[in-house]
Design a binder for these strands. Structure first.
Ligand SMILES: [Zn+2]
Ligand SMILES: [Zn+2]
Ligand SMILES: [Zn+2]
Ligand SMILES: [Zn+2]
Lengths: 143, 143
DNA sequence: CATTTAATTGAGACAAAATCTCAGTTAGAT
DNA sequence: ATCTAACTGAGATTTTGTCTCAATTAAATG
């Protein structure tokens, strides 16, 4: 028989477990939501989708779990200019062009911060896990 | 007689006027607050300080004015990890090291995105006015 | 497997932040 | 001076986030 895909085997779940937290059903629901679409999810969206998996999931647990994962540095909040915060994986980089006028967000891939990250790491004794590079301005349509 | 320093003569005021908006007393109060300390101001702080200048300033007007200036691309919201958004001038760059665990924010000055900005500008037809570069990780104390 | 215990939970009260409505006011054009 | 669309404050309303507490539960232990 092949190994059954145990629940709680993922980067996020491992992070929680290694930090000594319990892997409860409500938490696993939140993790599954984040893993299914780990980009730009607002707390409200996490709650809504999480309840599709675990119907009694409470708002408080969503906030508590997001806070927990943020503190562990595996996800992090960002603002996209359209209102409240949303959460994304805190791994590697996120690169956006954001239009001040219409709110459009374009993602790009070129990244130029590798060396700087190393320099800052040394200079400030900071252990860098991820970064966000955003340019603000006007998109073609809005100029 | 020398020219009296007319109200409504500033980068922010000029932006509003040129876009065809009225320069009202409540708006000027908000502008004065932003100009006095144009960094990292939350809407609540803007309201509080604005009322020291124009006592009946309303919360709604603060939000409306911040939204207006954001749409014009002269200020913009950023998230510092400590709660809600705050607003800063949308001119030049902002550079932060943010600790995921304790929320500490360190500012740095080295900037490496000039060329990339030009490239993206050309590639996407985007008119870039400002940028935000943030590194996330653990500060020396929290490692 | 049964017991134990501290971590975690949901519900709902609560607080804070943001949005909306509308009658009255005003900047700026004419 | 007049006019009018833009703008305003007050307060109702909605949305978002926090807190408390009794009940539940994961996981360690024997
Ligand atoms: Zn646009
Ligand atoms: Zn990058
Ligand atoms: Zn720290
Ligand atoms: Zn820069």
């Amino acid at each position: 028989m092949t190994d059954e895909p145990k629940p709680g085997t993922s980067w996020l779940a491992d992070s929680l477990r290694q930090a000594g937290y319990k892997l409860t059903a409500p938490r696993l629901a939140v993790l599954r939501v984040l893993e299914a679409e780990g980009e730009h999810l607002s707390p409200a969206e996490v709650l809504e989708r999480g309840r599709a998996i675990y119907p009694t999931l409470s708002r408080a647990t969503v906030y508590r779990t997001l806070e927990l994962l943020t503190g562990l540095g595996v996800i992090r909040p960002i603002y996209l200019g359209d209102g409240g915060p949303c959460f994304t994986y805190a791994r590697g980089g996120h690169h956006h062009l954001v239009c001040s006028a219409c709110g459009a967000v374009i993602e790009f891939n070129e990244c130029v911060v590798g060396e700087l990250a190393q320099t800052l790491s040394d200079q400030f004794g900071f252990q860098i896990k991820s970064h966000l590079l955003e340019f603000y301005g006007l998109c073609g349509d809005c100029q």
